[in-house]
Design a binder for these strands. Structure first.
Lengths: 219, 219
DNA sequence: CGATAGTCTCGTACGGTGTACGCCTCATCG
DNA sequence: CGATGAGGCGTACACCGTACGAGACTATCG
C-alpha cells in the first residue's frame, strides 16, 4: 500500500504571482477577511493557516502569537489618507473622526479589540493628524491632550455603542419588547423607545459638535 | 487497597450559614472576585467551581454558559443607589456618571466586556435614572435619546481609554519612549507627551461639561 | 565541489478550554 | 414504600494556542 502525502487543500486566498507564499501582510489581510466573515470567535490560528494553504505552525515564523495577529488586524483596518489640509480645520476634524468611526463599523469585531493597549502606526498616525489639526485650529498646547482624548473617547464610545446595539433590528425589537414586559421598572426609557428610535449617526455628529464647540471656544 | 474518594478541597469562599452551597448569587460574586484578582483570562469555569468548592459541571445547573456568567458579573458591578433627587440636576448627572466610570475602573476587566450587548437590570436602572434626571432638567423628549447616548458614549469611551492606557506608569513610559524613537513620524503627539501627561479624570470631567452645556443650552 | 548557516515550513504533542451527557444523591410527597 | 424532581458532579470530546524540533531550500564561503 502506498502512503501518500495528504494533499494540501488549495488556499482560499492565493498568493500574488511571484509573491512569497506566506508573509506578514498576507497573514494580516487573511485574518481581517476571516474576522469580517466569521467574527471574533471565528479567527483561529488553524483556520487562518488553512485559509492561506499553510501549516498552522508556519504562521509563527512571521508572528509572535495570536495576540499579535489581532493587534495587526485592528491597526490595518485604520489606515487613513486624510483629505489635504484645507482652510476649514473643523471640517477636517469631523471628516477624520467620522471616517474613523466608519472604518471600525465596517469591521464590527474591531470594537471588541479596542480595550487593549495597542497603538499601531495607523492609530498613531490618526492621533498625530488630529493633534496637528487641532493645533492649527488654535487649541493651545496645554489643552491639546484633553482635546485629543475627549474626541477619541467620543469616537470609541460611539463605535462600541453602535456596534453593540445598532446591529440587528430584530434583536433590538426583542430587547425593547423585553423592556416593556419589565413594565413599570423602566418607564422613561421605555417611553422614549431608547433602543429603537435612536439615530446613531446623528447622535455621533451632534455630540461631536458640542465637544468641538466647547473645546475651541474657551481658547 | 482501599480506594477512597478524593477529598474535596475546602472552598475559598464558604457559603453563608444556612445558605445553599451553590446559587446564582454566590457564583456571580465569586466570579467577580476571581476577575478582580486575576483579570479576564483568569476566569475559568473550572477555577470558578474550585473556588466555590464545587464540581465544574455543577455550575451549569444555575447558569447557561460562561457568557452568562460574564454578563451577570458585568451587571453586578454596576449597581447604584443614587443620591436622593436634589434640586441640582446637573450635580446629579455628574455624580451618576462619575460613579459609573469609577465603578468600572474599580474592576478593570469590565471595560473589555462592554462591547457585547448586555443590558442587565443595573445597566438599565442607570439609564432610566439618567433619563429621568435629564427630563427633569428640561431636555425635551425629542432630544432625550441623543442626550442619553452621547453621555453614555462619553462614559464608555473614557472608561475604556483610561483602562487601556492609564494602567502602568512603567508601560506608558516605555510606550512614550518607543514613540520618541519613532522620531520624526509623530512629532506633535510626541511633543505633547500624549501618553504621559494626560489627566484622565480632568479630561473626563471637562468633556462632560462641554456635553452638558451643549445638550441643555439649545433647549 | 562540500560545508555551513540562515530562512522558512510544518507535524506532533501538551496542557488547557467550554460544555454535552448521563449517573448519582437526597428531600419531598403521595 | 415508590416516584419525582432538584441539584451535584465525573467523564469525555472537540477544539484551542503554541513549544519543540525536524526537515527543505537557498545563499555564502572555503
Amino acid at each position: 500500500m502506498v502512503i501518500r502525502r495528504r494533499s494540501k487543500p488549495a488556499p482560499a486566498v492565493a498568493p500574488e504571482r511571484g509573491e512569497p507564499a506566506l508573509s506578514l501582510q498576507r497573514i494580516v489581510s487573511a485574518a481581517v477577511e476571516l474576522l469580517d466573515a466569521e467574527a471574533l470567535g471565528g479567527l483561529t490560528m488553524r483556520r487562518l493557516a488553512e485559509r492561506l494553504g499553510a501549516g498552522t505552525m508556519s504562521l509563527y515564523w512571521h508572528v509572535d502569537s495570536k495576540e499579535t495577529v489581532l493587534d495587526l488586524a485592528l491597526d490595518s483596518v485604520l489606515d487613513y489618507a486624510g483629505p489635504p489640509e484645507s482652510q476649514d480645520w473643523r471640517n477636517d476634524v469631523v471628516h477624520l473622526l467620522e471616517d474613523w468611526r466608519a472604518a471600525m463599523l465596517r469591521h464590527p469585531w474591531s470594537a471588541a479589540l479596542l480595550p487593549r493597549r495597542a497603538l499601531g502606526p495607523n492609530m498613531l498616525g490618526r492621533l498625530e493628524l488630529l493633534s496637528r489639526t487641532l493645533s492649527r485650529a488654535g487649541v493651545p498646547p496645554a489643552d491639546l491632550n484633553v482635546a485629543i482624548w475627549t474626541l477619541w473617547n467620543h469616537v470609541m464610545g460611539a463605535t462600541i455603542t453602535r456596534g453593540s446595539f445598532g446591529l440587528s433590528d430584530r434583536e433590538m425589537a426583542a430587547a425593547q419588547q423585553r423592556l416593556s414586559q419589565l413594565g413599570e421598572r423602566y418607564p422613561t426609557i421605555e417611553r422614549s423607545q431608547l433602543l429603537l428610535d435612536s439615530d446613531w449617526d446623528g447622535t455621533f455628529r451632534r455630540g461631536l459638535d458640542f465637544l468641538l464647540n466647547g473645546l475651541t471656544r474657551n481658547r
